[in-house]
Write a protein that binds this DNA or RNA. Sequence first.
DNA 1: TTGGGTAGTTACCAAGTGGCAAGTACGCAC
DNA 2: GTGCGTACTTGCCACTTGGTAACTACCCAA
Lengths: 131, 131
Amino acid sequence: MAKTDYEPSVFSADCSSRDALELIASKWTVLILSALAEQPMRNGALLRRIDGISQKMLTQTLRELERNGLVLREDRKTTPPHVTYRLSDIGVSLSSALITLDRWAEQNFAELDQAREVYDRQNDQDNPRPS
Amino acid sequence: MAKTDYEPSVFSADCSSRDALELIASKWTVLILSALAEQPMRNGALLRRIDGISQKMLTQTLRELERNGLVLREDRKTTPPHVTYRLSDIGVSLSSALITLDRWAEQNFAELDQAREVYDRQNDQDNPRPS
DNA sequence: TTGGGTAGTTACCAAGTGGCAAGTACGCAC
DNA sequence: GTGCGTACTTGCCACTTGGTAACTACCCAA
């Protein structure tokens, strides 16, 4: 049961830091936490900010983040519903690392695209489709 | 076709920086790049360093990283085979951000575990399983 | 001729991810 | 009482992820 007997390392499958890594190293997690780092948001605002996310994935990911204490959910219990999500302290501590990832992706995606093109072209040459 | 017409942002589903984010924000990617940041390694060494990874996922992820230019594959074409993987320059530029994630997970997983326990206990109370 | 050593590849299968669309809840304005 | 607005929840279904195990390739040593 006690997983903390191990030297805590993400390289060890038994250490629950691996679980933590799996949670935070996911596309929707990165985007949601980055969005909430800008400012606290409601469900609808997140839906609009994060292009392409579905209601289902948003709710599902928010629940998981809330469950792990990274996001706080404030429900005013009004009608119509008014629910606000914000980062917890520990969520804030994570968000800067995640935003670094965002920026890296935004600054370097062109180079990745180019490398992919080169690689695929070479691969097509190596394995030419027999006509 | 030209995706760069958009303001490049991971929040836009059409920007290929989103694809880049999806590539780098994955568990095995983070672990492999972090391992290679320590030193260049061969297939077997990576298998040993990254506890729990299968040969299949290792090869698959390495290919994808190579395809995107983050990892360089050096094959000595000897028998028995001797293949070394190392980070490219752009891979190195990414690795520090990824290692920050590793460290965050290692330092904070206990707090996440605790939050999860609290959340689940409350949830069980709210929805008691009818006996 | 058989087995070892390295780096794979392939087939099969179970579980998870994620989209879409329809349904739920509920008090308020009309 | 009908519909609106918000925040979900559910069911269905396709696609992806990822594990296991067996197989390939090649040269060398015993």
